[in-house]
Amino acid sequence: MLLIGIAINLSILIYYKYFTFILNNLHSLDFEFSISEDTILLPIGISFFTFQSISYLVDVYRKTVPAQKNLLDLGLYISLFPQLIAGPIVRYEDIYKEIKSRTVDREDFSEGILKFIRGLAKKVIIANNVGLIADKAFAIPAADLGTSVSWVAIICYSLQIYFDFSGYSDMAIGLGRMFGFNIKENFMHPYKSTSVKEFWRRWHISLSTWFRDYLYIPLGGSRGSKLRTYINLIIVFFITGLWHGASWSFVVWGLFHGSFLLIERSFKIQLPVYLRFLNHLYLLLVVLIGWVLFRSDTLEYAIQFIGHLFDFSSGVDNYVLVYLNYYTLLIIFLGILFSMPVRERIKKWVLNGIF
């Protein structure tokens, strides 16, 4: 029954999100199909509520949580509106008690409002502004890109995707808090990481822990041979990339991160304390190049874009730099600043009476 339930959920997800992608790949192998791009309309949030449904089935099977006998209460969990569209992925075990009995006091409600406002500020003030520059830059033909424009583009996109996604997560967590649901944090300043392993402990935490608990560990995790562990990691990151979108660019992005994770597991290099900043620079470089793969429409464009990051050419269409005025430079600076745990540090200083 568990396998049937998982198969039904995955079948729905595969049909709506990947069916056209599969047919297009078969078509490229000379299989003839006739299907319109607009034939299948993707339901909003299907990746999130499908994974939530699967985690519920598995947790009930494992007897981690009791089965929900009330269809409306189960529907509330699967379609909880604050996080339905953009996450985070909520585990049933985290909120099933709150579905039945929850309280909202003034402190919770005010904390929820503040969390929502911070998320909205991330989205509107930072993500939208740097996203405009990134969109203009990625619209330039690859042959016309210059080194300066390429670096501006990928830095802006890195800030856009972080503040956009973490902003939505904060708004969902804040809304949930206002209604009495305590949804776990989804981002913990991933750009301060010093390794790919640490990055995935801080980036989209609900997804990485979902794959750990419901895919990596059931596959055997790291309990088998080193080769088996590596195969398990490659499978996880292959599916991680595919989960983000029906495109080979996303798959390559996932495998790109997975390959560096394997390298880190194979070669554990301990740098002296005064050289630890090199670990941070390494992580940022890997992540930035990875975002090129993630953002580019095709692999060919991504490869050319990455080449322009290091060929020190001036480019032809540097009109993107026109958007770098005092306001946007301030936004980029604030984005870089607040991608680090600055707010927590200032709060700690205030509490300790430094200010």
Rank of each mutant, 00 (worst) to 15 (best):
M1T: 14
L3W: 14
L3E: 03
L13D: 04
I14R: 04
F19H: 00
I22K: 00
N25V: 05
H27A: 14
S28V: 07
L29I: 15
E32L: 12
S34F: 13
L41R: 08
L41P: 01
I44E: 04
F48W: 14
F51N: 03
Y56D: 07
D59L: 00
Y61G: 09
Y61W: 14
K63R: 14
K63T: 12
A67Q: 04
A67V: 04
K69T: 15
L71G: 01
L76W: 08
F81I: 10
P82T: 13
Q83I: 07
I89K: 03
I89Y: 01
V90K: 11
E93V: 10
D94N: 15
Y96E: 11
K97P: 02
E98Q: 15
V104S: 08
E107R: 13
E107Q: 13
K115M: 13
I117Q: 00
R118N: 11
V124T: 12
V130A: 01
G131D: 09
A142H: 08
A142Y: 10
V149T: 15
S150T: 15
I155D: 03
I161T: 10
S166R: 10
S166Y: 10
M171N: 02
I173Q: 07
L175F: 14
N186H: 05
P190G: 08
K197W: 05
E198F: 08
W203C: 08
L207S: 02
Y214V: 04
I217Q: 01
L219V: 01
G224M: 02
L227S: 12
T240A: 12
A246C: 06
W248T: 06
V252H: 04
V252Q: 07
W253M: 05
W253A: 01
L255D: 00
F256E: 08
F256W: 15
S266M: 11
P272L: 08
Y274M: 06
L281W: 08
Y282V: 06
Y282K: 15
L284F: 12
V286Y: 01
L288K: 01
S296V: 03
F305R: 09
F310H: 03
G315N: 10
L321Q: 02
L324M: 14
Y327P: 05
T328F: 06
L330F: 12
I331G: 07
G335I: 14
R345L: 15
K348I: 07
W349K: 02
V350M: 10
V350I: 15
V350W: 12
L351E: 15
N352I: 03
F355T: 05
